[in-house]
């Protein structure tokens, strides 16, 4: 078969798998039903059955990755929509975003060093707490491998939702603001969806923390690159 046809078939399988498996997550929202897990598993099964050449897989599906750019631009809308909340609570949001970002990048770097991880893996772990499109930008900027970072971000999201639920039970938090920021900073998109389950204010704060925290990381990336090199 022609290579062009094969990579078109992979694009079709990715799209088809996504739209076929998305309703499952909507009906049964668990970490193991997320399309981010089920679609790659489906594709892995297909790859096992028919064989896959990664370069060939990426040839047409890389257009999906290109769409992460406009998705990043779309973050302007939640920021604008929730400007009232930003104006009301900017000191608390700012504290959470600055503190959370420093802890996220610093702890990933230090823990990786203590665990004996170095090189590209350690660099790819640094931006893992923020939303995927921005994390991949930061990773490329500081010398990591964007694809590895994307994988680490996904693991963070899946694990973060479960960890956040446990932490919420033990931490003596008074405000909805803190619960939302916990999920938005700690588990980006997956956490934001979870925060919306708690309430609309928690969800809004989580999405703001995710977007603004991610943007802060992107703007700080040149400085971080200087520090870690």
């Amino acid at each position: 078969m022609h290579a062009e046809l094969v990579s078109l078939a992979w694009l079709a399988a990715t799209l088809g798998g996504y739209y076929a498996l998305k309703p499952l997550y909507r009906r049964l929202p668990r970490w193991w039903t997320s399309p981010l897990l089920t679609v790659p598993v489906l594709l892995a099964v297909l790859a096992f059955a028919f064989g896959m050449n990664y370069a060939n897989y990426m040839r047409d599906t890389h257009w999906l990755l290109v769409m992460l750019g406009p998705a990043t631009v779309a973050f302007a809308l939640p920021i604008w929509r929730y400007r009232g909340l930003i104006r009301r609570h900017w000191p608390a949001l700012l504290a959470g975003i600055l503190g959370g970002s420093v802890i996220a990048m610093g702890s990933a770097w230090l823990l990786a060093t203590w665990f004996g991880l170095g090189g590209e893996v350690r660099l790819s772990l640094v931006p893992r707490s923020i939303t995927t499109p921005l994390a991949m930008l930061v990773s490329a900027d500081i010398g990591g491998v964007p694809e590895l970072t994307a994988l680490f971000v996904v693991i963070t999201g899946v694990a973060g939702v479960a960890l956040g639920e446990v932490l919420m039970r033990f931490l003596p938090l008074r405000s909805r603001l803190a619960r939302g920021a916990l999920f938005g900073m700690g588990a980006h998109g997956a956490g934001t969806a979870k925060a919306y389950d708690l309430g609309s204010e928690e969800g809004t704060v989580a999405s703001l923390a995710m977007v603004l925290g991610g943007l802060f990381n992107v703007l700080a990336a040149p400085g971080v690159a200087w520090l870690v090199r």
Binding site: F115, G164, L182, A209
Partner: peptide
């Protein structure tokens, strides 16, 4: 080891962020 780093770091980020936001909110 990678998963270990991610889990520990995520717990730290969540705890620190939530405490900071709560502290500033209460102070205000």
């Amino acid at each position: 080891r990678i998963v270990g780093v991610i889990l520990l770091s995520t717990v730290l980020v969540m705890t620190v962020t939530a405490f900071l936001v709560d502290a500033v909110w209460r102070w205000r």
